[in-house]
Design a binder for these strands. Sequence first.
DNA 1: TGACATATCTTGTGACGCAAGGTAACTTCG
DNA 2: CGAAGTTACCTTGCGTCACAAGATATGTCA
Lengths: 114, 114
Amino acid sequence: MDSTTTQLRRGVIGPCILALLAESPRYGLEIVKELDAAGQLLSSQGTVYPLLNRLYEAGWVSSRWQVSDTERPRRYYEITTQGRAELAAFCDDWSRFSEAVNELIAPTRRRGAV
Amino acid sequence: MDSTTTQLRRGVIGPCILALLAESPRYGLEIVKELDAAGQLLSSQGTVYPLLNRLYEAGWVSSRWQVSDTERPRRYYEITTQGRAELAAFCDDWSRFSEAVNELIAPTRRRGAV
DNA sequence: TGACATATCTTGTGACGCAAGGTAACTTCG
DNA sequence: CGAAGTTACCTTGCGTCACAAGATATGTCA
């Protein structure tokens, strides 16, 4: 792919996953599907699984295997206290950053559509 | 560096430069300073010059050297018609993308500060 | 002349999203 | 039973691009 959007996603998908986990624990494929449903935010499994690993190693999520009689084992991820702090910090950064971009492109937007 | 913000900048600085040039022609260092002044959007000369080159090769900007008696030569960049189209397309992408992110992190924002 | 500021450009590095491919477990159906 | 399909996990290699650091050239001023 490597469209414009792929570049935009850099540094954003991780925090988005944290945001999902801040609501409730989820397993990998579930996250893939939800990011996909959010539009503009996916990617592929090849993005999500390594990313979950990084979040885990950073201490921002914890995980546990859940075994069931009726379904194949799933690894559920849960956000940690540190993860919540990280997410809050990202929201700050994102706010400031997107605001800066919006101001710069404001004249263009006023001119054209959208 | 490689802070959160460095990642966020990916794919954004180019269009931001186009947005600046859409107002008026500018030379390299001038762009560096303006991006810096916009906050969150710089980076360093090592980002801007190669980027200007890419924009040039893509046909989104043109350039001309301006020689003066009193100042050292500057290379001024100007946005092309193609560049304006590209910029408009980016504004679209950015709109959709940032909206998707905002919706995902909305619950977190509601909870915390910002 | 030498020191400094202004201006351009190059090199090497590292992060990370992605496509593609690989493995295992559970279900369904002939 | 066995074969096919689905769900779920994970790994490998690649390419892009922002960045720090450094190289070079020109103009000013003491």
